[in-house]
């Protein structure tokens, strides 16, 4: 999409075992200062989202037309928008939307991608060929245009934008899992499990899936970052959240025309998007170092 980062080839299957102890992982994660900064940012935004009604000084819908485009100041920390609504409060409530869209669309992509990836990788043959071609097709599309077309077909709304983002990102996870499964399938212990007649479903659940988890978590965290930007981009193009929802991307496009007279209406929503995305990217990088050391950068 607009943020091509995620289309980077998913990390090739690492042969290293996932760290058996989560505690070890956490210890080495904690040493990564940048990752901790990222975690701090995200915890901060999550707290804001959870505590929104207690933090926000105003209702995000509350309008005061006479007080429109008011400069940032004591009464309105981030100023007001063109409907006289408090931008600070809108950004606080917008946190909920962005986190929700980012996380849930990635979860959707992961579920669908993992299922397709496992089927393709484990059962192989014509199913693999079919699913892999499907991934090729989806990846060959210009993502943002595909998402726009999907939203246009379903009608513009936050849910549909979320769905479109999830669909567009399915192959990212699908390919990742497929490659991982392909390499695991040839591992001795899997062969052994098969040899002793273990059921496919049990092999999948007990051996294969847990071993895919590391790369999925890494890619998933980075995917949240991308999904947040993608949702904001759709909102910016008028294909996402509908009024009066305080979605950050929509706030940007709504205020775009005031950039000269009231730059605060544009600066703060953009900064919020960037900070959240940065947070997830930092965590993702840190997780990669821990869970997927071969990809260390």
């Amino acid at each position: 999409m607009s943020q091509p980062a995620i289309k980077l080839a998913p990390p090739p299957p690492a042969k290293t075992e996932v760290s058996s102890s989560w505690r070890d992982g956490w210890r080495s994660f904690r040493k990564n200062r940048l990752a901790m900064v990222g975690l701090g940012i995200i915890v901060f935004f999550v707290l804001i989202a959870v505590l929104a009604p207690f933090i926000a000084p105003y209702d995000y819908k509350e309008q005061e037309l006479v007080n429109r485009l008011h400069k940032p100041g004591g009464e309105h920390w981030f100023g007001t928008d063109d409907l006289g609504r408090d931008i600070f409060s809108r950004i606080i409530y917008g946190t909920r939307i962005s986190l929700w869209v980012g996380i849930s669309s990635v979860v959707g992509s992961i579920v669908a991608g993992t299922m397709l990836g496992i089927v393709a990788g484990y059962y192989g043959r014509w199913l693999d060929a079919l699913i892999s071609r499907f991934f090729d097709i989806l990846l060959a599309f210009p993502g943002i245009l595909l998402a726009i077309a999907i939203v246009a077909a379903l009608g513009p709304s936050l849910q549909n934008a979320l769905l479109a983002i999830a669909i567009v990102n399915v192959p990212v996870f699908g390919r990742l899992v497929r490659a991982r499964v392909l390499s695991l399938r040839e591992e001795e212990y899997i062969m052994a499990a098969r040899a002793i007649g273990m059921k496919n479903s049990r092999i999948l659940w007990q051996h294969i899936l847990p071993n895919c988890l590391g790369p999925i978590i890494v890619q998933g965290t980075l995917g949240i970052a991308t999904a947040i930007i993608e949702a904001a981009a759709l909102g910016f193009l008028g294909m996402g959240a509908q009024p009066p929802e305080p979605e950050w991307g929509k706030m940007l496009s709504d205020s775009r025309q005031f950039i000269q007279n009231a730059p605060w209406t544009v600066i703060f929503p953009g900064l919020s998007i960037m900070l959240t995305v940065l947070g997830f990217n930092l965590i993702g990088d840190g997780l990669r170092d821990v869970l997927d050391p071969r990809m260390k950068s």
């Binding site: 950039i259 730059p263 600066i267 998007i273 960037m274 990217n281 990088d285």
Partner: peptide, 22 residues
């Protein structure tokens, strides 16, 4: 680079436009 990968480019574009053009 980290900030770069996290940048919503439509916002970057707007900011550039505001600062350097307007």
């Amino acid at each position: 680079a980290l900030i770069g990968v996290s940048m919503p480019i439509f916002w970057l574009g707007l900011m550039e436009q505001w600062l350097f053009a307007l």
